[in-house]
Amino acid sequence: MRKGEQFAGVSVAMVTPFTADEQLDIEGLDRLVDWHVEQGTKTLVPVGTTGESPTLDHDEHRRVIERVAAHAAGRIQVMAGTGSNSTREAIELTRFAKEVGVDGALMVAPYYNKPTQEGFLRHFATVADAVEIPIVLYNIPGRTGANMLPKTINLLGEHPNIVAVKEATGSMDQACEILTGSQLTVLSGDDSLTLPLMAMGASGVVSVVANIVPKQLLELTDAMAKGDLAKARAVHNRLFALCKDMLTLATNPIPIKGAMKLLGTSNGVLRLPMTPLGDDGYQQLRKTLEGCEIL
């Protein structure tokens, strides 16, 4: 059995709801938590990239983690985003998350300052030494500017507190090197690649589209876990156009907040520098949602 299997299945990379004047919408956050509990989502992941963490100040970041943890109240797992390009700040955020009762921490690779592989090793090991909590590594070089190589990830996997990796490089070879070289649970970081990654041995997904279709994502991951490839493939094919729209229409989380606005589950408010979809983007998204029989 792999480490980190408690996070198998569907984790939702939660959006952060804002009011019309771009303040945190705490009541909206509560509604999202309640809805995901009803839908059967396995784990909530607040204040990741989809949660617009770069535009939240430190106090807001902590408020979102604390509120989600409190409102989840043991009904659903919480894997809080606590990553930073400052190791000291990552330790502080991860300690706070543990104090308020989350089940794990999702830690993005340090961004912008582009550490060496030795820097990645020391960064994550230092946090894991400082805070006894299950840590999920998040490798997304398209956002951070540097790739954490499989050898580095596999070495980090030897630490007892590092249990899984959210794999968002888009490389099947990289994912396979982790699956064959460590006991870490691998979670897809790209909705469109969940099925192929699970076919290789991954255990689930940290999903953007699960903000609107968590039950369908659960169908896919449950089917793959049971070896029912035909059922999983049917769900994958049904949702593929939507997954691609989330990646290609605009930078995440612009498309998912646009989809939630069309579905009436969000006002779609983003904080600068994120800007809403234009008319063409909304038309394409509406067409895709209708084609997937969601709208």
Results as ranks from 00 to 15, higher is better:
Thr49His: 13
Ala72Lys: 01
Ala128Leu: 10
Lys257Asp: 05
Gly281Trp: 13
Asp228Ala: 11
Ile162Ser: 00
Gly278Arg: 08
Ile212Pro: 04
Val131Tyr: 13
Gln216Ile: 01
Ile212Gln: 08
Ala164Ile: 13
Val163Thr: 12
Thr275Lys: 15
Pro110Cys: 14
Arg2Phe: 14
Thr43Tyr: 11
Thr194Ala: 11
Val127Met: 06
Ile91Trp: 07
Asn161Ala: 14
Ala105Asn: 06
Asn161Thr: 06
Ala69Trp: 08
Gly9Asp: 00
Ala146Trp: 09
Trp35Phe: 02
Ile91Met: 09
Val37Lys: 09
Leu197Pro: 03
Ile26Ser: 05
Leu93Phe: 10
Glu177Gly: 01
Asp222Ser: 15
Val108Trp: 06
Arg62Met: 13
Arg63Asp: 10
Glu66Phe: 02
Thr248Ala: 10
Gly83Ser: 03
Asp59Pro: 02
Gln216His: 14
Lys3Tyr: 12
Leu137Val: 04
Asp21Asn: 14
Phe240Asn: 04
Gln117Thr: 00
Leu44Glu: 01
Ser182Gln: 03
Thr152Phe: 00
Gly264Asn: 04
Asn147Pro: 02
Ser171Leu: 08
Ala80Tyr: 13
Asp222Lys: 15
Leu277Tyr: 11
Ser171Gly: 03
Val208Met: 05
Phe120Thr: 08
Tyr111Thr: 11
Thr43Glu: 06
Glu89Ser: 10
Leu247Ile: 12
Thr265Glu: 08
Val186Pro: 07
Leu295Thr: 04
Glu132Cys: 10
Phe18Pro: 00
Val100Met: 09
Val12Trp: 02
Ala72Asp: 01
Met107Lys: 04
Ile133Thr: 08
Gly281Pro: 07
Thr275Leu: 15
Glu52Tyr: 12
Leu272Pro: 01
Pro141Glu: 02
Ile178Ser: 05
Ala80Arg: 08
Leu106His: 09
Ala241Pro: 03
Leu220Tyr: 06
Thr248Met: 10
Thr194Ile: 09
Arg31Cys: 10
Pro196Gly: 01
Gly74Ala: 04
Leu29Phe: 08
Leu239Met: 09
Leu106Ala: 14
Arg95Asn: 09
Tyr282Phe: 15
Ala259Arg: 01
Leu270Met: 07
Arg286Pro: 14
Thr94Cys: 06
Arg286Ser: 15
Val127Gln: 00
Cys292Glu: 12
Asp279Phe: 14
Ala232Glu: 15
Asp30Asn: 08
Thr82Val: 03
Arg95Cys: 00
Ile65Thr: 05
Tyr112Gly: 05
Arg143His: 02
His58Pro: 07
Ala202Thr: 07
Tyr138Glu: 07
Lys98Ala: 11
Ala105Tyr: 03
Ala259Tyr: 04
Asp129Leu: 10
Gly51Ile: 07
Leu229Trp: 15
Leu29Tyr: 05
Leu137Asn: 01
Gln77Ile: 10
Lys287Gly: 12
Leu220Val: 06
Leu44Pro: 05
Leu239Cys: 03
Val102Phe: 02
Gly201Asn: 02
Thr180Pro: 05
Val102His: 02
Gly291Thr: 05
Lys287Trp: 12
Val10Ile: 07
Lys3Gln: 12
Lys151Val: 14
Gln77Cys: 13
Leu29Asn: 03
Leu218Arg: 12
Cys176Trp: 15
Ser86Gly: 07
Ile254Glu: 11
Val68Asp: 06
Leu93Pro: 00
His61Ala: 02
Arg122Asp: 00
Met14Trp: 02
Met14Ile: 03
Ile153Arg: 03
Asp34Thr: 10
Leu262Ala: 01
Val78Gln: 09
Gly101Glu: 14
Ala164Lys: 14
Met1Glu: 14
